[in-house]
Design a protein around this nucleic acid. Sequence first.
RNA 1: GGAGAGAUGGCAGAGUGGUCGAAUGCGGUAGUCUUGAAAACUAUUGUCCUUCACGGGACCGGGGGUUCGAAUCCCUCUCUCUCCGCCA
Length: 422
Amino acid sequence: MLSIQDLRHKKEEIISLLQKRNHDFTAVINQVTDLDVAIRKHKAQLDQILAESNQLAKQIGQLFSQAKQEEAELLKKKTVSLKEESRALSQDLEAKNNELKNLMVTIPNVPNQIVPAGNSDADNQIISENKGFISDLESKKPHWELAEQYQIIDFELGAKITGAGFPVYQGKGAKLQRALINFFLDRAAQEGYLEVLPPHMVNSASAFATGQLPDKDGQMYHVTEDELFLIPTAEVPVTNIFRDCIVKPSDLPLKRVAYSPCFRREAGSYGKHVRGLNRLHQFDKVEIVQVVHPSKSYQTLEQMVSYVCELLKELSLPYRVVRLCGGDLSFTSALTYDLEVYSSAQDRWLEVSSISNFEAYQSHRLKLRFKEDQASVFAHTLNGSALALPRILASILENYQTKEGIIIPDCLQSYTGFDKIN
RNA sequence: GGAGAGAUGGCAGAGUGGUCGAAUGCGGUAGUCUUGAAAACUAUUGUCCUUCACGGGACCGGGGGUUCGAAUCCCUCUCUCUCCGCCA
């Protein structure tokens, strides 16, 4: 959620930056600021009436204790009209506040100055492209064929047990998966992130605070019986650790890392681009989250990007860094970098990480603040995948294939206990 | 799942209808004393909204109600604890 203070004072600037999202928010924002003025006016009226009745109630109390019943009864009558007035006003105020909130949640975060204009991923800026290991086989097999050949991932078995998009990893496939998780968690710990193992379901308050609700509820699996949601990413439970918190400035930056399975309905996506591991309903991911001082958040974003790049270098995967354009930017983000690995048999770039600065957008919903010079300041939040497993696995399988089998990248061998899948 | 008890400020813990935003203790901050520290003493110490300001308003787990007036009474939801049942 944007700050209502910012909308009051920097309205024109906000409207113009929001143009980058290819949508004009002038009308909504005007509605918001008009409502805001009305709300403050009504609030002042209501406060005055409440002050009067508080005053009267005190007087009545004193009169009763002095046994002056008649005078008290007289004052009681005076309170009747005040009460009616305040009741009407507060109902009106509540309605207006709800209206305001409903409007506010439809306004996405304000894109940063450097976010390129554009509609789709075609307009994203490629920041850097980096070489990595690629198999020199003449004809390379896509990962789903390799997965079947070496019996490490069984898509059909998953389809039988659950449905499409829920693969079963077996043998060295399962071990490699566990190795990647451990590698990513250990590396993050070295970077100063505190490991957490969060719940895999969240309540609606949590889903709202990180921005999955109200706009993306169709993407989550919803357990209606208990009104819980399966997490689409560990970002949701981990960021909500800090919901309704006033942290010490000396605690910043707060750094957390979590492994979790991620559940996404991905309604309506079918076809060859979602084959194999490219898009799943359940997948594993290691996520990093930071809560930082507002003056540091862009510096932190750069650090997080270079940290995740480092992981890809250690895996020797070819990758590129992409700055998302306004049209591709997620609802809550101010600036996002995607990291994509090259998958040689498919000849495609696969998104394996999305690293975003949400500035104070999530903090406003989270009510996550710290004290600075007596004032409370909303902290900035950031997160990123470090990393999402299935496409990393796809890229490893395709890029590291040889006639003798799949070579395991050096940095993983101490985790897998084997150096080849054959 | 059944029965009972409870939820108060950073923590502990009073408060059962009227100057209670809340005693007291601990903790935090500032000061006095001290060469320095500790101890002691003094002061200060919740959050949010609104106002240029003075001030005003809201908040005692969440929501609703009774009352001129609610931390206190009633309803409801959530959570915690104890006992029983079930169970990895």
